[in-house]
């Protein structure tokens, strides 16, 4: 009898090697296909999402339940439209603020006032009940430093970040208040851990000196007020350049993108944090079974020795276009090659 998923994850987080590599299949949309629903119908009831997550885990035998609906939900709480598609995650519509005055007029919405956010909390409660303490339930928050991509549009946000410090500081105050309430509500509803999505913090987007002056301080303040563990994810962005800074926020885990050297990130974390990643979800759409196996084995070889590693994708969300066949091939490879002690020989080409 193996460990429960929760025990497996706890063991790797503590720097021990569990029975096998834990793996988080972060699917948000495949449950809709499983239930025969459109993506919009799927997210219209939290019960659908709970059922979708449970069915996905039963099929792919991974080690978490993922309470994330879609990122645009937070922008919607601030007044943005949500654009629905049949074949991808909902998008935020036009930005809610662009002028200096509009930004200074933003105020944090209340979680209880937004139906979509409340649906997420209901879904987390349902997942928590179903997990019965044996499976980690994951909640998600957008970093206050990254949410403005949707609130203002990326271009306008960079203008504000780089050239309008008063508006930036106001925006961060507003977003921090919202983020803390939203994160703590998810923890109270049943999330065992939060993922703090912060792509703007990545050195792909922001130079380190600017991050240290801005997003780092935002993260440090925000994480200190959240009443549970908070992993940091850069949503495919590079993190090595700011890793030492990010770890000072107290985050216990780092989500790594596929452009990054997984072994280098693992070495740089040096027992200070768990590494989560970094299968390429975009390429995954057309992987053969052999390619899926090779990718899993390569990631495991780089990240798994010594524990503090969770196999997952690079982005924190598997694209809807990834077929079930590939997800099954990845699952089979994890269960076959992820057993500790890890075989050190690299996969054959």
């Amino acid at each position: 009898m193996g460990l429960t998923s929760a025990a497996r994850v706890r063991r790797t987080l503590s720097g021990e090697e569990p029975d096998r590599v834990p793996w988080f299949l972060l699917v948000t949309l495949h449950g809709a296909r499983e239930l025969g629903l459109s993506i919009r119908e799927y997210f219209s009831k939290p019960e659908h999402v709970v059922e979708g997550q449970l069915r996905m885990r039963a099929r792919y035998r991974h080690d978490c339940l993922y309470g994330f609906f879609f990122a645009a939900l937070e922008a919607q709480a601030f007044g943005s439209d949500v654009l629905w598609f049949d074949d991808g995650p909902p998008n935020a519509g036009r930005p809610v603020a662009s002028s200096h005055e509009q930004i200074l007029g933003l105020a944090p919405p209340r979680v209880a006032d937004h139906r979509g956010l409340c649906d997420v909390l209901v879904a987390l409660e349902g997942m928590k009940r179903a997990a019965a303490g044996e499976v980690p339930v994951i909640g998600v928050i957008m970093s206050p430093f990254s949410l403005p991509i949707m609130q203002l549009g990326f271009e306008r946000y960079l203008d504000v970040l780089l050239e309008h410090r008063e508006a930036f500081l106001h925006l961060m105050r507003v977003n921090e208040e919202f983020c803390v309430e939203w994160g703590n509500a998810q923890l109270a509803a049943g999330a065992d851990v939060l993922v703090y999505f912060d792509p703007v913090a990545s050195s792909t987007i922001t130079p380190r000196a600017l991050y240290v002056e801005t997003g780092f301080e935002v993260a440090r303040r925000t994480l200190a007020r959240l009443k549970g563990p908070v992993a940091t994810h850069f949503a495919s962005g590079r993190c090595l350049g700011v890793l030492d800074d990010v770890l000072k926020t107290g985050t216990p885990a780092i989500g790594v993108g596929s452009l990054e050297d997984l072994a280098a990130v693992k070495a740089a974390c040096a027992g200070r944090a768990t590494v989560v990643g970094n299968l390429n979800g975009i390429e995954m759409r057309h992987w053969s079974d052999a390619e899926a196996e090779a990718a899993v084995r390569a990631a495991i070889a780089q990240g798994a020795p010594g524990g503090r590693f969770v196999l997952s994708d690079q982005h924190g969300e598997i694209p809807f276009q990834v077929p079930e066949r590939v997800l099954m091939a990845v699952s089979d490879a994890v269960h076959r090659f992820g057993r500790y002690p890890i075989e050190q020989s690299p996969p054959s080409p």
Binding site: S203, I205, T206, P207
Partner: peptide, 11 residues
């Protein structure tokens, strides 16, 4: 190469 950030590219 990951040596320059998008914010610098943009500006």
């Amino acid at each position: 190469r990951g040596q320059i950030a998008l914010a610098q590219i943009y500006m």
